[in-house]
Design a protein around this nucleic acid. Structure first.
Lengths: 288, 288
DNA sequence: ATGAAAGCGCTAACAT
DNA sequence: ATGTTAGCGCTTTCAT
């Protein structure tokens, strides 16, 4: 049985890739990781996983660790790092594919840095438009705090504007991307003199918390308050009422990201970075 | 920035450990992985993750891959491998900690192989006894197919016997550890002339499927059929009705397993393998 | 075809 | 204290 370390030193290839994600206990990521792993494994690569908590300092530490040459490439979901922060990796010839929430035009056209993204602005727009179509006029958003937050709030704003609805800034609430954050934000809404009749939760975990808060207040979904989520995590169709949400097919995302990475490692990728858009789909269930 | 590969070759240490799990998309494992990672990261170790699908052939392949000396130690949940299958790793001085479903007395007393286990027999016993205490006399089990299946069925049998209930073999159904498996098995029960009034699902994912099948049949939980699960995955308290289940605190499990591994890597573990028992707790919610 | 040897980038031992 | 060197186990080149 040959020694992999020695082989790696000699060949300058580690047969290992890294997945950098915020938090594996957020139900969005297991399927993503599995997607990455499927293709990695099929091609004989091991997978190292980093959890950054979506925290800038840990993301930086992660990049530093990856500079040690322990991996051939990395698939990453960064909430804070910019393309320039990845330069040390690229210079060391470590390939990088990022999962993004929007297409950033200015970012990295001249770097060999690939990007995959779901158009979160359009997706949020679709979610909010669905609510408007159901007759809602007073629609709140529980927005999360980082990562895709900005894109999703923007979709919300644009959808309202497009339909001539006034934007009430008090209808935009922040919370963590956690059930607790969703619960508390929803409690806040329900304590208001004019609570919204529908709420767009920036992810399904937040939506779960919102659902619980609505039930705890003795109200009904969707009759009293309608709820849309984002991500279509496995739980979404298991709760009562089943959650209307925006699917972004996380396993596919992982598969495609890993494929793009391997294409680059195989030297068959274009010289400069690609931006590849991936589909979303509004899944209408019972909560709206 | 020093080259980690060269350093590893020289020092014979990789500063990497592996977590071997069946499937990260089973909601039991993300928290376990995170527990392992917390302590690994705190001690400067990277974490490689393998998904085996609980399949014997992939578990073997995994061991072979780990023999290449890419890791210092491994935390593993094997469904098929025995202690002897791990000998190649131990001989290569790769430390191993297993998560088990029972204490196997005969297995590895003379190997430097550590084990962590939750007493699945006692835990299942507790779940079934709870059902009996609620007045149920005809109790089914949906048992899964591998891994902890055997221990959980044994707890079920022993609890029934201890309370003088006759064991009806037709009340033991297999399914995969999946929502689908649970759904189909529950459908089967409901189609019977004498369906059970309560069902013990061998894990929470199976229980989710059972819940859906009961609802689809127009019946109510717990009035028509009571359901207990196993694991206390995050979903368990989010479904309606909230699921009664046996918690085994998976993040703790991951933390302790990683600690045991690092103790061995630090040379402060006893020469021969340890069996360490971890607690479970029956969490009574609304489904029983 | 088979075999010998150089060297990947480090660290630890040793010599100065 | 500082500098030099051997060698970890492989792969690949080059010589036979």
């Amino acid at each position: 049985m040959p020694n992999g370390t020695a082989r790696s030193l000699r060949t300058q290839r580690t047969s290992t890739i890294a997945a950098v994600i915020p938090d594996i206990t957020n139900p969005f990521y297991p399927a993503f990781e599995r997607g990455v792993q499927e293709v990695a494994e099929a091609r004989g690569y091991d997978l190292i996983v980093y959890n950054t908590g979506g925290i800038a300092e840990k993301e930086h530490r992660c990049v530093r660790s990856l500079q040690q040459g322990r991996v051939d490439g990395v698939v990453a979901v960064f909430f804070n790092l910019k393309a320039e922060d990845l330069l040390p990796l690229l210079r060391r010839n470590v390939a990088v594919v990022r999962l993004e929430a929007v297409k950033k035009q200015t970012d990295n056209l001249d770097l060999p840095l690939d990007n995959l993204y779901v158009d979160n602005v359009a997706a949020s727009w679709a979610a909010v438009e669905h609510l408007i179509g159901r007759g809602h006029r007073r629609i709140g958003i529980i927005a999360g705090q980082s990562g895709p937050r900005q894109a999703r709030v923007r979709g919300y704003r644009e959808a309202l504007a497009a339909h001539g609805l006034v934007l009430d800034e008090s209808l935009i609430r922040d919370g963590e991307f956690s059930e607790d954050g969703g619960y508390r934000a929803m409690e806040g809404f329900l304590g208001d003199p004019h609570p919204p009749s529908a709420v767009f939760a920036a992810d399904d975990v937040i939506a779960m918390g919102a659902l619980m808060a609505i039930r705890a207040a003795g109200l009904r979904v969707p009759e009293d308050v309608a709820v849309v989520g984002f991500d279509d995590i496995p739980m979404a169709r298991l709760v009562t009422p089943q959650l209307t949400t925006v699917a972004q097919f996380q396993e596919n995302l992982g598969v495609r990201a890993a494929e793009m990475l391997l294409e680059r490692l195989d030297g068959v990728a274009p010289e400069y970075g690609r931006y590849e858009e991936m589909p979303f789909e509004l899944i209408v269930r019972e909560s709206t």
